[in-house]
Design a protein around this nucleic acid. Structure first.
Length: 421
RNA sequence: GGAGAGGUGGGUGAGUGGCUUAAACCAACGGUUUGCUAAACCGUCGUACGGGGUCAACCUGUACCGAGAGUUCAAAUCUCUCCCUCUCCGCCA
């Protein structure tokens, strides 16, 4: 969430930012409630001050065995007034809080303005499309023929969107996970194995709750949610903590399966490995000093890009426009890999800066070296990378005319084989 | 799942209704002393939200002792509900 003080002092900036994201502007309502809240706070505090002094006085009178009925009857009235003020204050505070949770983060000035994905800007691309005499097959045909991914039996066991990886397919998954984690370690990320279920407080901290509840699988009996991304448990590691400045930047990597309900999606978007209810991902999370979050964002993106280069896959870097960014981000890059079999780009990584938006919700601060007040950190994360579409791209990019698949050299030590089929 | 114990500031930990603006110690930070280190001594040492200000490092109010509600003129302290942690037993990879 945004800082209420920031909204109070820069209402126009906030209105403008919200407008750019195409969200409803509730700034005036927030300012009205904030004004009322401060008014009530002033009156209530004055009365409480009165209560504290007089109560002390009563204590003294009683100790000296003197009559205290006068002040006591005054305090009975004061008590009623305080109660009704506190009730209204609680009411106003709750409304204000609910409203504050609906205000999105405001985009960074470097983000292009726009409404739809068509307004996103391609800022870089790398690699070439595979050259072949034959028309490349989409990955679902290849994977079924090679018997390395079993979509039908996945449906039987759990439902659509839960594929079954078999033999070389399973091994390829495991190889990619290890490869991604090893590369992250070299780049200074500490590996984490977090819980795969989280409580409501954690999901609220990163912004999945209250609005985006429907994207997660819920276990109501135990009040837990299956993680939609490792971002949720990993960013919450330092919730309600004050870090030392010399601990920054904190860099974590984590492999987890991700569970997403994906209600309402259909058609070519969900074919094969394009969109799943359960998929594997290695996520990178950074907690950084507010002064350097944009250079950290770029280096995070480079960390993810390096993997695509090593795998030799053609990709492009998209800078998301204001309207296509999420609720919580100030700036976001997508890495999209080329699917030769489908003739389309597939998003395999999303790299974002949240500035202090999540940190404020989670209360993650740091104390500067020289002392002083704790400040909110900036949080960032990026996928490095999401597995299924990488598998899709690998199968399609490295397929041979005979319907086999050549495995890139960097993966051999992880797969133990260089060819599927 | 059953039984018991307990949740107090960065940490340890005192505190059963008013003398607590939460003791003391440790850690941290600043200083004095010192050939260096150490020690000793002195000082500072919470967070949030308000108000005032020559708006910074200052003054002031309120709240916060797991969470919420209640009793009372007055609650860390009494009552109720809930949450969490630990120990033992049961079950179990």
């Amino acid at each position: 969430m945004l800082d209420l003080k920031f909204i109070r002092e820069h209402p126009d900036l906030v209105r403008e930012g919200i407008g750019k994201k195409g969200e409803t502007d509730r700034v005036d309502e927030i300012l009205r409630l904030d004004g009322r809240r401060r008014e009530l706070l002033g009156s209530a505090d004055a009365l409480k001050n009165r209560r504290n002094t007089v109560s002390e006085e009563i204590g003294r009178l009683k100790k000296e065995k003197k009559d205290a009925t006068g002040p006591i009857s005054e305090m009975e009235k004061v008590k009623q007034s305080i109660k009704s003020l506190d009730e209204e204050l609680g009411d106003v505070g709750e409304k204000l809080n609910v409203l504050l949770f609906t205000v999105p983060n405001i985009p960074h000035p470097s983000v292009p303005e726009g409404r739809t994905p068509a307004d996103n800007v391609e800022i870089a691309s790398w690699g070439e499309e595979a050259v072949s005499d034959i028309e490349p097959k989409p990955h679902w045909d290849l994977a079924s023929k090679l018997d390395i991914i079993d979509f039908e039996r996945g449906v039987k066991i759990a439902g659509a969107g839960f594929p079954l990886y078999k033999g070389a397919g399973a091994r390829l998954q495991r190889a990619l996970i290890n490869f991604f984690l090893d590369e992250a370690a070299v780049r200074g990320y500490r590996e984490i194995q977090p819980p795969l279920m989280v409580n409501a407080v954690s999901a609220t901290g990163t912004g999945q709750l209250p609005d985006k509840e429907d994207l997660m699988y819920a276990i109501p009996k135990d009040e837990l949610f299956m993680v939609p991304t490792a971002e949720v448990p990993v960013t919450n590691i330092h919730r309600d903590e004050v870090l030392a400045e010399e601990d920054l930047p904190v860099k974590y990597s984590a492999y987890t399966p991700c569970f997403r309900r994906e209600a309402g999606s259909y058609g070519k978007d969900v074919r094969g490995l394009n969109r799943l209810h359960q998929f594997d991902k290695v996520e990178l999370v950074k907690i950084v000093h507010p002064g350097v979050s944009y250079s950290e964002l770029d280096s995070l993106r480079e960390d993810a890009e390096a993997l695509l280069k090593k795998l030799g896959l053609r990709y492009r870097v998209m800078l998301m426009c204001t309207g296509d960014m999420g609720f919580t981000q100030t700036k976001k890059y997508d890495l999209e890999v080329w699917s030769g079999g489908q003739k389309r780009w597939l998003e395999v990584s999303s790299v974002s800066n949240f500035e202090s938006f999540q940190a404020r919700r989670m209360n993650i601060r740091f104390k500067a070296r020289g002392g002083g007040k704790p400040e909110f950190v900036h949080t960032l994360n990026g996928s490095a990378l999401a597995l299924p579409r990488i598998v899709a791209a690998l199968l399609e990019h490295y397929q041979t005319p005979e319907g086999k698949v050549v495995i890139p050299k960097v993966l051999h030590r992880y797969t133990g084989f260089g060819l599927i089929g």
